[in-house]
Design a protein around this nucleic acid. Structure first.
Lengths: 149, 149
DNA sequence: TATTGTTATACTCTATAACTATA
DNA sequence: TATAGTTATAGAGTATAACAATA
């Protein structure tokens, strides 16, 4: 056999999503490597910069991961002094997450690099096609939630 | 803080792709559970049904995974008697993978179920929007390869 | 009682090096 | 020497149960 047919799998949108997402993910990982960030540490840092004072449980919620899995991510960002665990007033159980100056500066640089790399990935799509893509992805993301309304 | 802003991340197509893909992946896993299949065992089974006699190295290539990681997948499908490892004539190193009757029947049922579930995910998209989505995903998947031409 | 963060644990997916048997 | 399949191993991401401190 010299040629492998994926005719059946090709009919599924999920198949194309997995393949495209793998490319995006690999490229993002490569883009973030110079900053010593991964997708998860990057997402967490961006969200903390944008939402100073947020709690870990809120961050886990926003990132769609379980609380225990966030602990090591926050540990890593804190160890590198990109964020700090401040105390929430009137609730000594929780931490108020805040980016340091160093953290928000690294975040800005990383965002610039990610923007440039994403532009390369989307170079074949015009503005309309990009808008339609995001719209379609949002509809898919919320399709099952809408079912239960 | 009562509201978390993801304004920065929302600007990235990759962010929307991750979220949409997570939904698709979770739904697919749930859909395949009654058949005792995972995404990887499902993809492998479909490809073997469509390409009887293919070798493991070809299958790993088609699935975009490393050869060692395919071994347990094939082991599992073989143990459940959904496929067999036949011998390739004139090359005693390689196996010719073939689905059993039981395997191709399970595959047909699984495909039907996946088709139905995917229809639910895409219910908000008309035919045009679906075609545009697949086109966009294919362009993203091949964007970096085209760069190097 | 319930919640926040944490520890421990386990399972899946992925990646690499090294082995065996064949070619 | 090169290739097909295998073994062993390690890392990342994810999920659950259970705990201490606090509400």
């Amino acid at each position: 056999m010299t040629h492998v047919s994926d005719a059946t799998l090709r009919k599924f949108v999920g198949y194309h999503m997995k393949r495209a997402f793998n490319v995006v993910q690999a490229d993002l990982a490569k883009t973030l490597k110079p900053f010593d960030l991964r997708m998860l540490t990057y997402s967490a840092l961006v969200l903390i910069v944008d939402n100073p004072g947020m709690r870990q449980s809120q961050l886990a919620d926003a990132m769609d991961i379980e609380r225990p899995n966030l602990v090591m991510i926050i540990d890593e960002l804190e160890r590198r002094e990109l964020i700090v665990r401040d105390r929430v007033p009137n609730d000594r159980r929780a931490y108020a997450l805040k980016a340091t100056l160093q953290g928000s500066q690294l975040c800005d640089q990383a965002i610039k690099s990610v923007v440039a790399h994403e532009e390369q990935l989307l170079v074949a799509l015009d503005d309309d096609a990009r808008a339609n893509l995001v719209t379609a992805l949002k509809l898919i993301e919320t399709s099952l939630k809408r079912d239960t309304l």
